[in-house]
Amino acid sequence: MSESQKKGYKEIPIGGMITKAGSSAEFKTGDWKSFTPVWEKEKCIHCMICPAYCPEDCIPKKDGKRLETDFDMCKGCGICAEVCPVKCIEMKEQGDSDE
């Protein structure tokens, strides 16, 4: 956020209070990661273990299939790669990623 977008002391709630529920969704944590999960879609058996384990809840699901990780949110913790029973997720250093 640029300096000019930040609010002044008269505009913000008192005591550092956050008055909007679920506002953490606006906080993009994707740039925290140094490792990126690279998913081999073809190898995936859609067992749904990785979305259940993902602490950031950033692996979307649709019609019984998992979709590509939301990289705006993924912190690169590697839990998905660890729990995958068919090893179709590999953690790669940011620079190595095809993305």
Partner: peptide, 13 residues
């Protein structure tokens, strides 16, 4: 009217 109290505030706020 859910709110969060006592969050982190760094150099920005």
């Amino acid at each position: 009217d859910p709110v969060t109290m006592g969050p982190l505030q760094l150099q920005d706020y």
